[in-house]
Computed example of a mutant assay.
Amino acid sequence: MEKEILLNLINKYLSNQATAEEEELLLSYYSTLQKNELKWDELEMGDENTARVELYSKVLSEIKARESSSKKVFFMRRWFIAASVTLLLGVSASLFFYLKNDNSFLSTKNKTQPIKNTIAPGGNKALLTLANGSKIILDDAATGELAKQSGVKVAKAANGQLVYTVENTSSNSATSGPIAYNTIETPKGGQYQVDLPDGSKVWLNAGSSLKYPTNFNGNIRSVQLAGEAYFEVAKNAKKPFRVVSNNQVVEVLGTHFNISSYIDDTSVKTTLLEGSVKVLSTKSNRSKLLKPGEQSNISYLNSSLSVQEVNTEEVVAWKNGYFLFVDEDLKSIMSKFARWYNVDVEYAANVDNLRFGGMVSRSRDLAQALKIIEQTGNIKTKIEGRRVIIMP
């Protein structure tokens, strides 16, 4: 698509003047850019992190100007998509659309200097424990078949994900007898994708585990989650899908949602992207039906259940390969960094009132990720071994 045409399309998209066909065209182009993973041209566009942080600050200021929370979420998504497209077009497009001749935006003078003392990001790492107790380190396992269990083949695909296939549906071994359970665990600094026997897809974040049957017999498809995972559940109106996690049960028929249930957080959060889900607090016995864009919050302290609208792009950013922070407190940010980079965090300063907004690729090393936080001027960071020290 020619740059001038695309810029005009983005302009119409943000001003709500684009037709349904034009919006579909832009979203399709945005998806293409994501799939092709186009590279940042640093010589033409300057330092990537600096550009994204400064652009994000401008986007965030626009969002805060909106009064209604629902409008904020909607407007955020529009700017996020438009920003992603324009940044990949080059400096002239970005300057034209966002900064109106503010030539300081993508200045190459502010390039981040390389930092020697750093830590590599996490990757596809997981441990699979089969029903018979045998263990397979998935990051070391070769592509292909790993095991067979009761008529179900377990294989590692070329892209690294774990795939279950029911080989013979006519066999009693696949549909009867005692239920066998497997468990997949990601360490700190690890993530993994699993295709379950029913066709559902699960992305596990760092420091998480999923226990599930080798085949979904009976009237309920039930799994157990600790940590965080994004689910794309295969539709089956006759067999509900349940996710049991800390203090809650989530039930769906087939939809997309994210659950964060880390025990070191203050609550378990379920965020719905499409369809509907029922969230039940197992301690208070209260339940809520979520609509797309809503997030339930069940407190570990008193089991209270609340629902609010959220920016889903921020919630599932980890699954899409980046961190996205929208006015988030520093300790929450560092908790996410600690899991992904497998580090401990020490605070040599009072940071209780510090909040940040920004985004950074999860493929960046730790020093580069911390540089985003340091650019606010409020704190400094130091890496010692696998420890990060936050200083005033």
Rank of each mutant, 00 (worst) to 15 (best):
A174K: 04
N247G: 06
E24R: 10
M391F: 04
N215T: 09
L330I: 14
V268N: 02
I333N: 11
M359F: 10
L324T: 00
G254Q: 06
G144A: 04
E294G: 03
L88T: 10
D365S: 10
Q193S: 10
Y56M: 12
R355K: 13
K319M: 07
I298T: 11
E54P: 00
L253Q: 01
A155P: 06
S361Q: 13
L106R: 14
T255R: 03
N247T: 14
A180V: 12
Y30Q: 04
L225M: 10
Y98K: 09
Q34C: 12
A131R: 07
T175Q: 07
L305H: 06
L88P: 05
S281T: 02
A20T: 12
S134K: 15
L354M: 14
A93F: 01
A234N: 10
G293W: 08
A157F: 05
I389G: 01
S171R: 07
G133K: 05
F241Y: 00
L305I: 02
N172L: 14
V154L: 03
P213Q: 04
L138Q: 03
V59H: 05
S361M: 06
G275H: 11
L60K: 15
E314W: 01
W79M: 12
M45N: 15
A158E: 15
G123A: 14
A82M: 11
Q193T: 08
G357E: 05
N353A: 08
E274Q: 15
D198C: 04
N353V: 08
M359E: 12
I298R: 05
N124F: 13
F231M: 00
N172M: 11
S104K: 13
S299W: 02
Y13E: 05
S245G: 06
Y13K: 03
M76P: 00
F74A: 14
I63L: 07
A18P: 05
T214N: 13
F97I: 13
S335L: 12
L273W: 01
S287G: 00
V388Q: 09
S134E: 15
I81P: 00
T129F: 05
R77C: 06
S209H: 01
L14K: 01
K100N: 14
K288D: 09
S332C: 03
N350H: 12
D102K: 07
V202G: 02
N36Y: 03
I179M: 01
G189A: 03
G177I: 01
W318E: 03
Y30V: 04
D365F: 07
K278G: 06
A234V: 04
K319E: 12
E346P: 04
R387C: 08
V252P: 08
N117C: 00
A367R: 07
L204M: 11
Q191W: 06
T376M: 02
A338K: 08
T214S: 11
K380Q: 12
K278M: 13
I259K: 08
P114N: 11
F257M: 04
N36Q: 15
T112F: 11
L305R: 03
V194H: 01
D102L: 06
K135C: 00
G321L: 07
D198N: 01
